[in-house]
C-alpha cells in the first residue's frame, strides 16, 4: 500500500502521463493553441510599439490617423505604407513590428508579385488569391477552429450529460418519452437545415454554434444515460439512498463522477469532429462569412487554385496535425480511464 493515497482522478492522470505519445500531443496542442491565442502579437499589420518624434504610440490598442505620423489623410494609418516605414526609420524614431507583418485580412497594396503569390521573404507561406497572407490566415484560422471546437464540445457535453443523466436516473415513462423525442429530433436532416438557415440569415459563427449544438449532444446523452442506468442500481447508490440522501446529491456525488468515463474519453474526438464539421461547412461555403479566417475557406481556395500549391499544402498540414494530435490525446485518455488496466508502471 502506498503511503499517499491518490484519488482515482490523479491515478488516471498518471496513467495518461505514462502514455508518452498522448502526453506530448497534449503539451504540443496546448502550446500551439496558446501561441495562436497571441496571434495578434505574431501576425499583425500594425507595429506593437512606435516611437515617433519623442512620443510612444501603441497601434495595437489604439487607432491613430495617418496625420499623426506625418501623412496627408485623417484615415487610419496603413503601417505597411513605404512612406510611413520610411518615417519610422528616421533617427530617433522606431517601430517594433510583429514577426509577420500581415494580419489575416491585410491586403498588401504594395506587393511586388501578382496574387496568389508563392512563398517569399515577405509572405512566408505565400498569399491567397486576394493577396492575404496564408500564414496569418492559418494561425487565426487554427485559433478559430479550436475555440469553435471547444465551445461546441462544452455545450454538447453540458446538454448531453444533463439529459442523459435525467433519463438514466429517473427511467420509466420519462425515459421512454424523452427517448422517442430524441429519436424524432435526431432524424431531422442536419445539413439541409444548415443550408436553409444559411440562406435565410446572414452567415455567422454564432448561428453555426447554435445549429451544430442543437444536434451535437444526442450521441453523448445516450452514453451518459446508459451509464446512469447501470450505476443507479449499484450498491453504493442504494447505500446512499438508505442514508437519506436526496436525488440531486445521489446524482451529483455518486453517479455522475462514476459515469464520466465515456464523456471524457470522447472529448478529443468530439473536438476533432467539431473542427472537421466547421472546416467542411466553410469548404462548401455554408460556414462563416468570407472575411473570417477559416481553414475550410483556405482549402476551397486551394482547390480553386491548384497551381498555388502553398495554399492547399499548408492548410492540409495544419488540419492533419491538429486532428492527429487530438486523436493521440483521445487514445491516451481512453487507456488512462480504462479501469481494467493495471496501475503497475
Amino acid at each position: 500500500m502506498t503511503p499517499i493515497s491518490l484519488s482515482p482522478r490523479r491515478r488516471a492522470w498518471q496513467r495518461f502521463r505514462r502514455h508518452r505519445l498522448g502526453y506530448w500531443s497534449l503539451i504540443l496542442f496546448v502550446g500551439l493553441f496558446a501561441l495562436s491565442l497571441c496571434a495578434e502579437l505574431l501576425c499583425n499589420d500594425k507595429p506593437l510599439v512606435v516611437r515617433y518624434q519623442g512620443q510612444w504610440y501603441f497601434p495595437l490598442v489604439q487607432t491613430y490617423p495617418e496625420t499623426v505620423f506625418g501623412g496627408d489623410f485623417p484615415t487610419p494609418a496603413d503601417y505597411l505604407d513605404p512612406f510611413l516605414r520610411q518615417r519610422f526609420a528616421e533617427p530617433g524614431n522606431f517601430a517594433l513590428y510583429p514577426p509577420n507583418h500581415y494580419s489575416f485580412n491585410t491586403l498588401n497594396y504594395f506587393a511586388p508579385s501578382p496574387n496568389p503569390a508563392p512563398p517569399s521573404v515577405e509572405n512566408w507561406l505565400g498569399t491567397d488569391d486576394r493577396g492575404r497572407d496564408v500564414l496569418a490566415r492559418l494561425i487565426y484560422g487554427f485559433r478559430l477552429s479550436v475555440v469553435f471546437g471547444l465551445v461546441l464540445t462544452v455545450i454538447g457535453v453540458v446538454i448531453g450529460v444533463i439529459t442523459g443523466a435525467l433519463m438514466g436516473y429517473f427511467g420509466g415513462r420519462f425515459d421512454l418519452v424523452s427517448q422517442r423525442l430524441i429519436e424524432i429530433w435526431s432524424s431531422m436532416p442536419e445539413l439541409y437545415l444548415i443550408i436553409i438557415f444559411a440562406s435565410i440569415f446572414d452567415p455567422s459563427l454564432w448561428l453555426l454554434v447554435v445549429l451544430l449544438s442543437a444536434f451535437g449532444w444526442m450521441g453523448l446523452s445516450d452514453y451518459v444515460r446508459a451509464e446512469f442506468y447501470r450505476n443507479r442500481t449499484l450498491e453504493y447508490v442504494r447505500a446512499a439512498r438508505a442514508l437519506g440522501l436526496g436525488n440531486r446529491q445521489i446524482m451529483g456525488r455518486h453517479i455522475l463522477p462514476n459515469s464520466m468515463t465515456p464523456v471524457i474519453t470522447f472529448l478529443p474526438f468530439r473536438m476533432s469532429a467539431s473542427i472537421l464539421a466547421l472546416t467542411s461547412l466553410d469548404f462548401l461555403g455554408l460556414g462563416v462569412p468570407p472575411t473570417v479566417p477559416s481553414l475550410g475557406e483556405l482549402l476551397a481556395q486551394g482547390k480553386g487554385n491548384l497551381d498555388a500549391w502553398w495554399i492547399s499544402l499548408s492548410t492540409f498540414a495544419v488540419l492533419v496535425i491538429t486532428l492527429l494530435l487530438l486523436t493521440f490525446m483521445g487514445e491516451a485518455l481512453r487507456d488512462a480511464l480504462d479501469t481494467r488496466k493495471a496501475d503497475a508502471p
Binding site: 493515497s5 484519488s7 482515482p8 482522478r9 449499484l234 450498491e235 453504493y236 442504494r238 447505500a239 446512499a240 438508505a242 442514508l243 456525488r253 455518486h254 463522477p257 462514476n258
Partner: peptide, 17 residues
C-alpha cells in the same frame, strides 16, 4: 435503519475518500 450489502467491492463509491 441502515443496510450492509453483499458485495464490498460494489458498495463503496470508488471516487470518495
Amino acid at each position: 435503519m441502515q443496510m450492509v450489502f453483499q458485495d464490498p467491492y460494489a458498495s463503496l463509491n470508488p471516487r470518495m475518500r
